[in-house]
Design a protein around this nucleic acid. Structure first.
Lengths: 219, 219
DNA sequence: CGCTAAATAGTACGTATGTACTAAATTAGT
DNA sequence: ACTAATTTAGTACATACGTACTATTTAGCG
């Protein structure tokens, strides 16, 4: 027999409980990883009973989805603020985005949350869809700057350069993130990234992107 | 009472069984993720009994460690072959490394295995240590090429540029890997990466790396 | 107040998991 | 061919898990 969700969390009290639940779930995901995320642990962390947790989230998958949504909204709100305070100078705008994202990697939450999300996305359709949405939104201001800095590129090419820059920064997570070996070098890495990306955007040509294969193909 | 490992896998038969076990474990990790990796599933995949699995790996952690070692050795063997066939021309050498790593992302195993490893490394000391070792070894030939292409950098600076290039490529995993949305663009991304990294290596200066902060700091 | 809905706690059940332990079967060396 | 070591299978148990279900408490409102 199917259980129907009853807890809509419309009252003050309900909303607070939901926040406690989502925070607890996120903490467990970050501190112990998805494999250790259980309904019982989430309830314990939120200091409520398992029954109460089920009142709001009848099954674990519902909880996971809402937790991912909630966690990502937090990042997006910050990012949106940055986007709206956009500088008219595309070079300055690009620099501030790079700086924001790279320095955000030093945030302990970011360091552990995103690798969990990436791993999850390989096995969970919803996490995968969510990832596509986040990064598409992150790329928008990048594409805007790139387009203005290099008008020779068509939109598809602009998209690919933005994708390269975005994914490049994400890759630093595992190395310069919080608690990582190279964490002390995070500012130097941001410098290298900024210099590298600016040069790339300014000097890349449609031909370079579209060439059939590299000069030194693997035998 | 503590159980002692008895299966050393010294005989032909034992070695074969161990391979079946490791392959099974790796398949499950890749196809279903670490949260679904259980002793029973591994035994089932290897077509042996749980008791037999325990004979070789008395506990799950031992199995995990050996599986990670084994999986990474496979990649390293390939990579070592590339390193030994090193080109004398540092630019060509750099290009071939970039090409190798980026195109390897199209491998379905790589696409899913590495994000699992990164997530694991945030909660498991051994996985973390292993990661450090792999990427340190990947960086060696990069550092060699960079040093020769740009003699103005000291070794610490060379290391950081190599780290940037390496992590940048790893970041593409989540976007251009097998089954990912941008997988069709993998060759274009390799082109962008090659052009971008070469320009970076040739034009970066010690001052650019070491500068205190960016021109557009976040308020 | 009293009444209804929302929120919370508690219990129960079937299943999965890690691992300890025992026994049987197979292999290899002499 | 016999024996000892290796390999394999099977069973058992305590614990953890997801979730269905019921009962109790709390909050809001006429």
């Amino acid at each position: 027999m199917r259980n129907i969700r009853k807890g809509t969390g419309e009252s003050r009290r309900g909303k607070e409980t939901i926040l406690l639940i989502l925070d607890s779930a996120k903490s467990i995901l970050i501190e112990e990883g998805y494999s250790k995320l259980s309904m019982r642990k989430v309830a314990l962390g939120a200091q409520i009973s398992v029954g109460n947790l089920q009142y709001y989230y009848p099954n674990k998958n519902d909880l996971l989805k809402d937790m991912l949504d909630h966690s990502i909204d937090e990042f997006m709100d910050e990012f949106e603020r940055l986007r709206l305070g956009a500088n008219n100078d595309p070079e300055l705008h690009l620099k501030s985005i790079i700086n924001f994202i790279v320095l955000d990697l030093g945030n302990p939450t970011t360091t552990t949350f995103y690798p969990e999300l990436w791993a999850l996305a390989n096995h969970d359709e919803y996490a995968d869809k969510l990832m596509d949405e986040i990064y598409a939104r992150v790329r928008v201001p990048l594409e805007d700057s790139i387009m203005r800095l290099n008008p020779t590129l068509n939109f598809e090419q602009v998209q690919k350069v933005a994708l390269f820059i975005s994914s490049s920064m994400e890759g630093m997570t595992m190395f310069v993130g919080h608690g990582k070996v190279w964490n002390d070098s995070i500012q130097h890495m941001a410098n290298i990234a900024t210099m590298s990306f600016l040069q790339l955007v300014k000097n890349i040509t449609p031909e370079t992107i579209e060439q059939a294969s590299l000069e030194a193909p693997l035998r």
